[in-house]
Nucleic acid binder design. Structure first.
Lengths: 144, 144
DNA sequence: GCTACCCCCTATAGCGGCTAGAGCTTCAAG
DNA sequence: CTTGAAGCTCTAGCCGCTATAGGGGGTAGC
């Protein structure tokens, strides 16, 4: 029984984002008032909160789509939801490890900075020569 | 004295990415052979390696542009490079903290999973109700 | 010389996940 | 009945690439 603005405030999701979710089919098409404005009920709010919380946990929208499908079928096994959560956990752990390596290297670079001119700058030097950094990097892949 | 393919292999950066970097002005326009193919020298390789390493450390392209400008002026102070590295380090630390919170919550969700049907699934339940998760989230902002 | 083949070229469109803006209509309060 | 906030659609843009289509260049063997 509420407009998109109220829904936005209640769920903590911006208005254009809500319309975007509808556009890509993550939210069902909302019923409209006579004048064409979207009308939402409590179910829509729950669904949007589910999406928001999942996004905050780093799930990609496609994974959320699958989770929503699962949630819509309460009789099915929760193994798939469990699996999605485990996959997400593994992804998060990987990103933490990668970021910690970056953190260590950045700290080393900064600690070695002589605070002189660029010609002697350890930061610039290390960035230009991978062999100085002392460990392997892997190409960027993920988000978050 | 090498083609884009060799440069790509030597620097570990894909060919379309190299052309993209040239397009956005991160690499200078490469001289061309008679037939119009790009020709690269050792300086180009160094510059590309610098970019790659910086990207691996999570610097956005705009920050890399600034770092390259600095590296091109070896007489200037390295304070700016130091500052960029510190900003990047702070960003990395923030992301690590956020990801650790996510990790903890995902682990709790998964541990609580009853392995039954979706109707009783803790994973789905927690995703749908933020109040069950026991801490604050913040909206997604960063990459990596 | 000629062919076969791989490499290179440009240009355009698409990815995820939104966000911003223009220019209009609808709704609720006073 | 008027005003102004809040809604609507549509299009384009963000980052950092990646993919595809449809062509031309360069070289090694015959």
């Amino acid at each position: 029984m509420s407009t998109i603005g109220k829904l936005s405030a209640a769920a903590g999701v911006k208005i254009p984002t809500i319309r975007y979710y509808e556009q890509i089919g993550l939210l069902p098409e909302a019923p409209r008032s006579e004048g064409g404005q979207r009308i939402y009920d409590h179910k829509a709010l729950n669904r949007l909160r589910f999406i928001r919380h999942s996004r905050e946990l780093g799930f990609p929208l496609e994974a959320i789509r699958d989770l929503l499908d699962l949630a819509d079928q309460p009789q099915s096994s929760c193994a798939a939801a469990d699996g999605a959560a485990k996959a997400q956990l593994a992804a998060v752990k990987t990103r933490i490890l990668r970021l910690k390596a970056l953190e260590a290297e950045l700290e080393r670079m900064i600690a070695d900075c002589a605070h002189g001119v660029v010609a002697d700058c350890r930061v610039i030097e290390v960035l230009g020569d991978h062999s100085l950094c002392g460990h392997e990097h892997h190409p960027q892949t993920g988000t978050l």
